[in-house]
Amino acid sequence: MTLKRTLIAATMLGLAGTATAQEEKIRIGVSIPAATHGWAGGLNYHARQAIDRLQTQYPNLEIVLQTAANATEQVNDIEDLNSGTMTALVILPFESAPLTAPVKEIASQGVYVTVVDRGLSEPGIETFHIAGDNPALGREAALYINSKLPDGGEVVAMRGIPTEIDNQRVEGFKKALNSSIKILDEKHSNWNRDEGFAVMQDYLQRFPKIDAVWTQDDDTTLGVIDAARQAGREGEFFIVGGGGMKQIVQMVKEGSRQDVPVTVSYPPSMIATAIELTAEHFVSKIPLDGRYILNTSLITKENADLFYFPDSPY
């Protein structure tokens, strides 16, 4: 940690040193969660792709990527971004509340702020906000389950890492789910394959009848598939995940698994949209101000091709 901070500080000093030498340098800091789960892995992949692309294209553009394993680390990271030399900050906050004050501080020093996905707790700090629709991720899953279980039924849900995102998704899911459908339980599997496997094993022991499983995460879905296979209960229920992981999208696209008929998109590539637009705003002076909400859509056999990225790690 300390080493990392030193390195970042050193990088920033280095940048500050060259500032006088070259004119019109545009410096953008990008702060995102570390690749600790599949979706965040995709996020890192798309961020790096976008940064490489932009820096090759515009030599006067300098982009620094920081990844943090938790909110505290992220606060440290952006405090280390010497804001005096920064043109813009693109940030996907780990948690809204703890990041609000530090980002506000940076914005008050005249740094352009782009917030990705999770909003800050106070409105008006950022100039540009791009986000996926978390409540809709839950809602789309619930609507699909409603359509498949018109006469009611029993579903088990899985929660993610306890965060605001998880709360919003679960809330969206519960609100949209038909009252005739009962949620048997909702345990945390932390958007993790291993934990999805273990939690599903226990659900299978506990509930003799399950009609559907909502995992809200495609990585978790893979764990659920294996738990079902081990218990000999494959095909008894269908599984709705989320995120758009390539293995799952491939299953949906090819229709190779009856119990994974759909998933819900939540593209980690939105970070690339954010970085590209922010960079273009300064390089090409395109207007950028306001909010951009990416639609969250149900990925089905028909449209799966649009969501399939075989080269992405996620």
């Binding site: 599949g38 892995g41 995709g42 992949y45």
Partner: peptide, 11 residues
């Protein structure tokens, strides 16, 4: 491991 897996999963 993160580097090997490019931040994603090795399958």
């Amino acid at each position: 491991v993160t580097w090997f897996a490019d931040g994603g999963a090795l399958t």
